[in-house]
Amino acid sequence: MMAALALLPLIAQLAHQPFWLDLATRLVILAMAAASLNIILGLGGLVSFGHAAFLGIGAYAVGIPVHHSIYGGASWLASDNGLFHFALAVGAGALFALVTGALSLRTKGVHFIMITMAFGQMIYYLLESLETYGGNDGLTLDVRSALPGIDLDNPAQLYWLAFVILAGVLVMTWRLRDARFGLALAGARENARRMAALGHDVTRIRLAAYVLAGAICALAGALMANSTAFITPAMTSWPRSGELMFMVILGGAGRILGPVLGAGLFVLLEEALSSFTTYWHLPFGLLLILAALWQAGVFTTRSGGART
């Protein structure tokens, strides 16, 4: 699967189907976001329903500096330097995860789902209120992030960059799953009370996963901004978070390549349904909500502590 993805720009070019490359870029970036969610949802068993907020944070970490570099103002922030954009995305994503994670990880089960969703919506309304950056209408990226040696205006190069980062994220997930961190996360997922009795600081372990996932997802958001060259607050709304959950669950929560499979199915389904009917959002939304509810149900029986 990864090999096919690696060769995709060549295939698209040979087949004269540049549209395939667009789809594949979307797939790879969504897979990266889903892979980050897989760390908390799959490995950690925590149903976070606000993950799309990090996509938005990463996207605006590109959009806002670019906006100022062209239209002036906020000179401390104005920049078209991609390294700055990506660092800002990762930093802001990690910071937002640290603060909101520290608060939401005090709660459990359905409460955790609700509070993470609330924090996600908070970002949505915050971005919507920023009139300078287009408010509800969003922001067009007049230039893409400038990187040394890579031209993001070239779709194939953008694709390669996203693909390499995705591969890195997957390798990292694979390594950390089998390392101390993954074992501790799994232990906390199975039985947090027992973990504490053993001497593990469960909240700290989960917070570390939350921050890592937030940073990775924000990076995916920064790539997404470069890919679409247009960003809106809607990227962060709760249905987008639901879609990320859907991808993780569909691909198999906790499986290393699951997010890629899930994102692939998602992108194909999205294409198929939208070609059938312009009202594809409705059946699609219903599907997503069903998947989310299913996972929430599994979560509550898993953490209900009724096991002996």
């Binding site: 990292m172 390594r175 950390l176 089998d178 390392a179 101390r180 961190f181 993954g182 074992l183 501790a184 973990m195 053993l198 001497g199 593990h200 372990i205 570390a208």
Partner: peptide
Amino acid sequence: AQMGSPLRMWRPV
């Protein structure tokens, strides 16, 4: 739990 950091992310346990 007694042997220090659980945050090691690379080396297999």
